[in-house]
Design a protein around this nucleic acid. Structure first.
Lengths: 146, 146
DNA sequence: ATGCAACCTCAAGCTAGCTTGAGGTCAAGC
DNA sequence: GCTTGACCTCAAGCTAGCTTGAGGTTGCAT
């Protein structure tokens, strides 16, 4: 951990494509941590580039920041994550992704039945079912099938 | 169109499982239309149950209200949609769903490569690519892969 | 004709995920 | 030593998709 390995926020932003404000936001949410210079400026580790990459990828897979934080918390505390730490995390995401694909595939099958009858009826059609909503949690309909 | 076929908003809510406030919200957004009684109360057609069902289903598939409105606008104006109108719309949704599944499947393949190297690097990894974000539109990362 | 549930409008609030702006500080080059 | 750009905090704003609340009206049953 050489002094050259500490990155200011702008550099991290440049490397990840994120906005500076977004990185500060993530820090605020506890997704990433920074050291401070004596002048109160943030300094990040090189490995935080990877951490932010993970956040971006996981977001693309439809995970919310809270879920992502949960995933990230599985990384070792104190030491810089190794390659195999990241592999473990990736596999964990792969499981989530699998589930998502399966659910969509099942939904497509139902939709196909539904196209057959053209009903779109909440009563007759399996496509939509009330209990799903109840179990969805949070306010309003979800954006993502989960 | 018998007088019995006009439903007050509460009845529509009961039939669809939606909150009354949500239905008013959708009306406000132009997703559904209502007649008014002389006392200014909303009255809906029976076929609006199906319209709302469609909204719910499309939302589960990850479509936003704007996209859903675009889909719905393909329904015939003036007359109550027929079964084959709904079938056409369902097929249109099926296409969107197909695309979504394909994208996820491709992503999974990339993730698998990535697990191999454990890199999660924006430079080397295909999983995340900057141009996707640029093309995403709107503010911030999207919730759903599209 | 009266009571009360269901309806109305309009404004404000909430979660997620950020951005933008105001007002101020730090650090490096000339 | 002074300018300039990158950095800081804190508060407010924005989109999506609704809900909640205040304050008022309708309409159906008794």
């Amino acid at each position: 951990m050489d002094k050259n390995d500490l990155l200011p926020i702008g550099e991290l932003a440049r490397r990840t494509g994120l906005a500076v404000s977004a990185i500060r936001f993530y820090e605020d949410k506890g997704l990433i941590q920074a050291m401070r210079t004596m002048g109160n400026q943030r300094r990040f580790l090189r490995s935080d580039i990877r951490r932010l990459s993970f956040i971006l990828i996981a977001q693309k897979l439809g995970l919310g920041l809270t879920e992502i934080e949960a995933e990230l918390s599985q990384l070792p505390q104190g030491r810089t994550p190794t390659l195999s730490d990241w592999q473990k995390l990736s596999r964990s995401v792969r499981v989530a992704l699998d589930a998502k694909i399966q659910l969509l595939t099942r939904t497509r099958a139902k939709l196909d039945e539904c196209i057959g009858c053209g009903c779109l009826s909440l009563q007759r059609c399996q496509l939509y079912n009330r209990d799903d909503r109840a179990g969805a949690g949070g306010t309003g309909p979800r954006y993502v099938l989960e």
